[in-house]
Computed example of a mutant assay.
Amino acid sequence: MAGLFVAIGDSFTEGVGDWDPRLPNGVRGWADRVAKQLSKADPTWRYANLAIRSRRLGHIVEEQIEPALTMNPDIISFYAGGNDILELRKDMNRLLDDYTRAVERLLESGARILLFTGFDVPLHPLLEPFKRRNWTFNEHVRRLAREHPERIELVDYWTWEVYYDRRMWDTDKLHMNRAGHRYMAIQILNQLGIRHQLEFEPFGPRERLGPVQLASREVEWVRQWVLPMFGRRMRGVTLGDALEPRWPAPIRPADGMKKLYRKRVRKAVRAAGRHTMNAP
């Protein structure tokens, strides 16, 4: 049966790590892949994705939930809180209360809701306190899912051991790469009971690194990703500040998402040209 799938959240749902310059914001991601398979099952399925990288829970609630609900979706995916957990100072009780209220608002819609635990990403010991916050957050998400089993589908990302393989992750170690997003899409489709054509592509051989190489990579990772991330947080800026939602209004994936994006770009170019010509 056809319907509308709306994805809301942060970089996880936007698709960061699954890079593709032919699509909005230069990414694809698991949500696009799920939507494409839904459209293959029934071409009348529609899809919107309001997620933007770096968004905290409060921003997602303020910017995305009500616009999503006005579309009357049949399926809503909601992943939020990961960026809050990585704040230097965070009241976890308040975060969990805010998350609960957001889920309760989504439940009022009558839609089927996908909630996610966060994965236990292997991180530097300096970031261990953030992992403990993640454990607390995950238990809270699981409890909400148990309280509403008829309405909430729990995607228990935490329990999927395949993600302990570094080949599932982008170079920042925080976002899934193409393989990770593809596997996520497969698991979600299976959980929803949607027939699909996706297959997980086997990895090549593991890269063997000695202790010196591993230590060097760890130092480089901290320099390239961890320090800049916390620097942005201290300055109050994010990687998503200049971005718009990838699919702000429902599209039909059966029409071809790359084709739809090319049309959008051409339309924007023409509009910019008219503005330039009409400028004094």
Rank of each mutant, 00 (worst) to 15 (best):
K258L: 09
R132G: 10
A254S: 15
D165P: 00
A145V: 12
I75W: 12
L127G: 05
V34H: 01
R208Y: 10
A31S: 15
S54P: 05
L214S: 01
T13C: 09
R167D: 11
A185P: 04
N83G: 04
G210C: 07
A102L: 10
D18L: 08
I152F: 06
E62L: 06
E220H: 08
R206Y: 14
G81V: 15
F78D: 02
W160F: 08
V34R: 00
A7W: 04
D10L: 05
I85G: 00
F203P: 07
G204P: 00
P24F: 05
Q187H: 11
R46E: 07
I75A: 04
A242L: 10
E66S: 07
R94I: 12
K259C: 01
G9K: 01
L260A: 09
D98K: 14
M229W: 09
A271H: 14
N177D: 03
D241G: 00
L243S: 12
L88C: 07
W158M: 03
D170E: 13
F5V: 02
E220K: 03
P280K: 13
R246G: 11
D91W: 07
S77M: 15
A145L: 12
G256L: 06
G81N: 15
E139R: 12
Y261L: 10
G193F: 04
L123M: 11
E153I: 05
G58R: 13
L154H: 01
E128M: 08
L214E: 05
P24I: 02
M168E: 02
E128V: 11
A145G: 03
N278M: 12
K90R: 15
R233S: 10
E201V: 13
V265H: 02
R132I: 11
A111I: 00
E207A: 12
L198R: 00
E128K: 09
H148I: 08
K90F: 08
H140D: 13
L23D: 00
V265E: 07
Q213D: 14
R208V: 14
P253S: 05
R56H: 13
A35V: 06
D84Q: 06
G273L: 14
A48W: 02
P248S: 11
L114M: 08
V265C: 05
V219Q: 11
G256N: 04
R246H: 08
N93Y: 15
I76H: 06
G180S: 01
T13S: 13
H196R: 00
L95P: 03
A179I: 07
V162G: 02
E14S: 10
D241E: 10
V226Q: 13
M176I: 04
W160D: 09
P24H: 07
G81L: 15
R146T: 03
I75Y: 04
L115H: 09
E62T: 03
R132T: 14
G58S: 11
R208W: 10
Q64S: 04
N83F: 14
G204D: 02
Y163F: 14
